[in-house]
Amino acid sequence: MAAFPSRKLLTIALVILTTLLTITLYRLTSLETCFKMHRAVHGDLSALWRNPEGTAERPHAAACEIEQVKAGYSLYQMLIKEPLHFKCQKPRTIQNRDEGSWTYCADPGFALKKPCLVYSFGINYDFTFDDAAGKLGCQVLSFDPSMRNLTDRRRNENVMFYLIGLGSHDTDTFEPRLNSYVAEPTKWKMRTLKTLLQQMKHADRTIDLLKIDIESSEWQVIRNILDTGVLRQVKQLLLEWHIFPDTPPRKEYVKLAEVLDELKAAGFRSFHRHEHPVNLDWSEFNVQSDVAYVNVKFKDR
């Protein structure tokens, strides 16, 4: 008579079988995640430019690499190394008071001419760009919640300042991360761009230029602006992208690449880029890059 396996052997066999099943399920999940990442991060983004409608099937690499460092390095390539995709014939640069500058496109169809509308987020007490846009005849709305010694006020005939921040959701109790602009814990009033446009009675207006410099919060904000469809109202987008050693979380890098991908699919083509050499060290996960875009899909409202 054949001997039945002992209870101990059966237990061992069950553990081995469970482990193999768990590994198999994990690998299947990882493969799906990997495929999505290669579509968003390692895909041949040039295919999107050859097909402006975004319907081209982008190739993906045969080998699968889902490590956060590699995903992050792909972000670095997209923010720093990727070729520009629009040739602006009349770029105009406005130098900030202390350091840095902003470049916009003055080509026909994009030039800032009265009655233009500009939304500017992230001032840090330097209204150089906002004042310059105001002198061109634009109505300029300037926002910065970190300038706590100021209140909502009219700066001049065309420039109005608001002690409000641009957020991915509406809240009066946003707690910003501590950095060179925020020395101690505080709470800010934040509104989405869609909410601000409604409050300012600009829901049906064209935004001739949208400037955003909000110290790494731009990733969630652009995600929200994409989801709400407000970008269709924007002609030009001037954006300072940030990746710091501690934020955004590295586990989010794939999603960040998706934001860049979708921004392009929405019609935004880069025509200018400036990297900040002081904050450019990928070995420390540190990237800061000013990128200027025009919306080639813009249609007059």
Rank of each mutant, 00 (worst) to 15 (best):
L237W: 03
R154D: 08
R27Q: 08
H85F: 00
V140W: 00
N149Y: 02
E258Q: 12
F86Y: 15
H276W: 11
L141V: 02
W241G: 01
A292V: 02
T206N: 07
L79R: 11
A40Y: 13
H38Y: 11
R250M: 10
T103A: 09
K264P: 05
Y293P: 05
K87L: 06
L9H: 13
E175D: 08
N179S: 08
A40T: 06
S46T: 09
Y76M: 03
H60T: 14
N286I: 03
L166F: 06
E184F: 07
T11Y: 14
I80P: 03
V278R: 12
P59C: 02
V69G: 03
R154G: 08
Q198E: 14
L141H: 10
A132Q: 00
Y162S: 02
P115V: 02
V291W: 04
G54Y: 04
D130R: 06
L136V: 05
L197I: 03
M1I: 13
G122F: 01
R7K: 15
E215F: 10
H202N: 04
S146A: 06
L48F: 10
D227Q: 14
K201W: 01
I164N: 05
D44T: 06
P52D: 03
E57M: 10
D172A: 09
A133Y: 02
E67Y: 04
S101G: 02
D170C: 13
V118I: 15
E53N: 15
V259H: 02
I164Q: 14
R269E: 07
T24H: 12
V254C: 10
A62Q: 07
Q199S: 10
A56E: 08
K36L: 14
I222A: 07
T192W: 05
R232S: 15
E32T: 12
T206D: 07
T11W: 15
I16S: 08
D107P: 04
S46A: 03
E284Q: 15
S120D: 09
E82N: 05
F143W: 04
E184R: 13
L231E: 03
A71W: 04
S146D: 00
Q68V: 09
E175P: 02
L75S: 01
P248L: 13
T128L: 01
Q199T: 14
T171W: 15
Y253E: 05
E157V: 00
Q68C: 06
K8L: 10
F35G: 00
Y73E: 12
V294T: 13
A132D: 01
L196P: 06
E65C: 09
S289G: 08
L260R: 08
V118E: 01
V182H: 11
T24P: 02
L112F: 07
D208W: 02
Q220T: 13
E82I: 05
L48A: 08
E258V: 12
A40K: 00
P83Q: 11
G100W: 07
R7Q: 14
R205A: 15
E252N: 13
T93A: 11
F298R: 05
E32D: 06
R205H: 12
Y125E: 07
V278D: 14
D227L: 15
S6G: 15
R155M: 11
P176R: 08
